[in-house]
Design a protein around this nucleic acid. Sequence first.
DNA 1: CCAGACGTTGTT
DNA 2: GTCTGG
DNA 3: CCAGACGTTGTT
DNA 4: GTCTGG
Length: 227
Amino acid sequence: MCGRYTLTAPAEDLAQRFLLDLSELQTLYQPRYNIAPSQSVLAVTGDGVHLVPRWLRWGLTPAWSRDGAAGPINARSETVFDRSMFRQAIRQRRCLVPADGFYEWAGSPPHRSPRHFSLQSGQLFGLAGIWERWQSPSGDPLISVCLLTTTPNPLVAPIHDRMPVILRPEQESIWLDPAVTEHADLASLFAPYPADQMRMHEVSPAVNDPRLDTPECIRPLAAPASD
DNA sequence: CCAGACGTTGTT
DNA sequence: GTCTGG
DNA sequence: CCAGACGTTGTT
DNA sequence: GTCTGG
């Protein structure tokens, strides 16, 4: 699945890749090496014409929530159209969550071993997300987001049995098109991203602590000697 | 009909 | 063990 | 996802 | 709000 990710690119690259206004982005954006659930994350939504950046809480709080508690951080793409909790959002409130890497943990406690996955090109990519708005009895609306997951590709499979849905650039306009609401028109987007275009390396368990948010999080562990 | 849940992951 | 917070 | 708290009363 | 279970 996807419970941590990175967005380390400079604001200029991010603005160019997702067609966002740089000056608007710069007011809140800073590179992140350890983005965790419950935090405010950058998402890109579409109104059919423009791309709109939003800062959303990671952990979906549906409109009918009584207390506004954070909900699921992931939704299974295989069943997202069937679940009442996601039904409205998957049809009407899809978004991209910009990232340039994500973490998965291998093994069982107390020997869990984190890995960082990214594109071989090093480029930014868009994770498939859905969002919801919850209105507190008194106060500002809470807007939250949830990331879709799918089956792992051969690179991820040895580490985990799920991986996030990564959209290819040519799929992004379909994903963000409000006129598209049918499962049949979106199901093909949920395929695992090709393994031969991705890379992985082991990182320090220091990334376990969500308070650490530095380049150390993505630094490859020294590879074991091999000759 | 009403009541109550509504999600995923991983681990034991 | 389970829930909350980041 | 992992880390850390998990409680009340009364006092400062 | 919407779906499932009784």
